[in-house]
């Protein structure tokens, strides 16, 4: 148990969630406002699209990839759902999800078969999808005129939930089950940790990557579709903010950008942390810049945990202060880093 808790993929999300929940409970009394059920409901409403994006982005990050296009698929999914779902909401969601899955599959295919790094590919797709969304709507937001669906996705279930937030939670549970009970979870971490070795060990890297990007495209399109139903309109350009918040959530969820680390429940905790923080900012009417500085601070903490060079520097500093034979310790440290470097060469 202790070992489980000290691993970064459980420690980081656990700590961040505990801290944020504490802030969430303490902040309203400090500022004189009351914490109501409605605040929890609102935080979960914010969590609904963020969680789906975080899950999609997070699982690609576990496998050592980075799907920047999720925010483009998110925009396109919202637009497609509104365009096709005016009469039947379900049809709109189905169309959006199909489009998202197709985009993800194509990207995954390119990345896996041609062995291209995912960042430039998904950046290009992001630009193209933003253009496609804008071309579909003529650059304007599109109104969704189906009040039934708008009402349904946001109706209160069990005091604090809504169908939207329940769908997101269900997606996390499904991901946790699939990654936890089948070998897929281990395979993803293996692909992210050492792709060459996992290929040699018989992991079907290509198939996994295509599946992964398909899932992330599907989740992003679903998030966009449900959000545009909730707003009763689709926005052709959501900006980079949703992506950036999803990255923050994924990193707080214990995923590392180098890949090979992370769990769905960690991602859930990360997404909940960010959603709760956003709600705290709303309750306490924190100015926008303060929220931004807060996110910057959070990321710097995560960065400190993740930066190998900084860790080495700190380790060296600690070793120096701890050991009396500081010179010796330092020398052996340096020798270690040099021999690391040479193995990288050979």
């Amino acid at each position: 148990m202790r070992r489980l808790l000290t691993r970064p993929e459980t420690l980081v999300p656990a700590v961040s969630l505990v801290v944020v929940v504490a802030i969430f409970i303490c902040a309203p009394p400090v500022t004189g406002a009351d914490l109501t059920r409605f605040d929890v409901y609102n935080a979960l409403q914010g969590f609904a699209p963020l969680g789906l994006l975080t899950l999609g982005l997070g699982i690609t990050m576990i496998a050592g990839e980075f799907d920047l296009s999720v925010v483009g698929t998110y925009a396109l999914g919202g637009m497609v759902a509104v365009e096709t779902g005016q009469s039947s909401a379900l049809l709109g969601v189905a169309a959006a999800v199909a489009v998202g899955a197709a985009i993800g599959a194509i990207q995954g295919g390119l990345i896996a078969k041609l062995k291209i790094p995912s960042l430039p590919v998904t950046l290009a797709t992001y630009i193209a999808l933003l253009g496609l969304t804008s071309a579909l709507s003529g650059g304007l937001s599109k109104t969704y005129t189906n009040p039934g669906a708008t009402f349904w996705v946001d109706k209160t279930v069990v005091t604090v939930f809504s169908p939207r937030s329940l769908i997101t939670l269900a997606a996390f549970v499904a991901a946790a089950l699939v990654l936890g009970l089948t070998k897929i979870g281990r395979e993803l971490r293996a692909i992210g940790g050492d792709r060459r070795a996992s290929r040699v060990a018989g992991v079907r890297v290509d198939r996994n990557l295509v599946g992964l990007f398909t899932v992330s495209g599907t989740l992003a399109a679903l998030a966009g579709a449900l959000l545009s139903y909730s707003y009763a309109s689709a926005n052709p350009d959501p900006g980079l903010q949703p992506l950036v918040l999803a990255v923050v959530a994924a990193l707080l969820g214990g995923v590392s950008l180098t890949g090979g680390r992370g769990l769905p429940f960690g991602l859930l905790a990360g997404a909940l942390s960010v959603a709760l923080l956003a709600q705290v900012a709303a309750i306490t009417s924190l100015p926008d810049y303060a929220t931004q500085l807060l996110y910057a601070g959070l990321l710097v903490v995560v960065l400190g945990i993740d930066a190998p060079g900084l860790r080495q520097a700190i380790d060296r500093l600690l070793a120096r202060s701890r050991a009396r034979t500081s010179l010796l310790a330092d020398a052996s440290n340096q020798a270690g880093s040099v021999s690391d470097g040479t193995t990288g060469l050979s």
Partner: peptide
Amino acid sequence: YWSANPIV
């Protein structure tokens, strides 16, 4: 100096 991840 610290090999910090440029994206984050």
